[in-house]
Design a protein around this nucleic acid. Structure first.
Lengths: 173, 173
DNA sequence: TCAGGTTCGGTTACTATATAACGCAGGTGC
DNA sequence: GCACCTGCGTTATATAGTAACCGAACCTGA
């Protein structure tokens, strides 16, 4: 359960695509980085750095905080994962799987958004251009040059609303 | 310098307005909360909880982490300050000053956005409806009920771009 | 006037998140 | 060989945030 990648094969394919993408940008997806990426991808929910560290220790007993943080920094730079600021946690980038020729240049991020369900903890990644454009417009209007955007929201997902989990908090009985 | 409120008088007026607003919502702006709010307001840049704690200790020698965090939680609930997630820091809410009759209900947040300058650290608060609406639309489209949104961006402010601080990072020579 | 609640905040201890600084191993180029 | 770079192990520490317990102040109702 909680598998972001359905099968080992799929995972391998995703990791290889990531490796290829790194190479194209002159970076190297080393064994450590590949392990950390695999751990992030195999959980489709955001994973804290220390939760990740615990998992990593199974494969790499000597692992310490800098071990994971360095790998995470690399993966963030490569756009292979995202950080969910509200949770101080990391999650695979949905875009990273599809290998469109140029990758995205992490300077030309099209923007992404996270919706975090307070009921079940599910985190949904959107890639809504209207949101990205509205923010870009607002920034341009005050002469601000965007480099990286963080758009996150907390609330209730459709499933939790349907099952009434949102009712208690959203509409008091 | 770095005064969000131009004068002591202005600050007092802002604090009194905040107190009035708290009363209306059945809450109390105690001396501690008032001190913490004043410290946040007198710095127009985001302030970390521990930086705040240091300042607070001048007035309240026994202050400890829970002292500030409890006050900050209260001020956040009242909508008097915001948390900048990317910085784990707190900043006064620009809206809180103007005392429009009903306050805003912190359930009906109209949404706000922060633009954080990587050059000078300035943090600009926007209140752009287009951004808020775009996000609300995107959420509704996937059946997600928003409760609280976090929209933050890092980049370069107009002043830093003009003085060339952004050139190095934004447009390689 | 006293028991019972509530809010507020002091205090101690702790957990969680993140980074600094040092150093070494392996590759690359001269 | 020597200088340089990247990657990472290792130790220590900084920063951020909470849990739990306690007592003071203040209500309230009997």
């Amino acid at each position: 359960m909680a598998a972001g990648q359905g099968s080992a094969t799929e995972m391998t394919r995703a990791l290889d695509a990531a490796a290829a993408r790194c190479l194209r940008s002159g970076a190297q997806l080393t064994e450590l980085r590949r392990q950390v990426l695999a751990l992030v991808l195999e959980t489709d929910q955001p994973l804290g750095a220390y939760a990740l560290l615990d998992k990593l220790k199974a494969q790499r007993p000597g692992a310490a905080p800098p071990t994971v943080y360095r790998a995470l920094d690399f993966l963030l730079e490569q756009g292979l994962i995202h950080k969910v600021e509200r949770l101080n946690a990391f999650i695979g980038c949905v875009e990273a799987g599809h290998d469109h020729g140029h990758g995205h240049d992490h300077a030309h991020e099209h923007g992404h958004q996270f919706l975090i369900c307070g009921g079940c903890g599910a985190t949904i990644e959107l890639s809504d251009h209207a949101v990205a454009h509205a923010l870009a417009d607002a920034a341009r209007r005050v002469g601000f040059q965007l480099r990286k955007t963080t758009v996150e929201a907390e609330g209730f997902c459709a499933a939790c609303l349907a099952s009434g989990a949102g009712a208690a908090a959203g509409a008091p009985a």
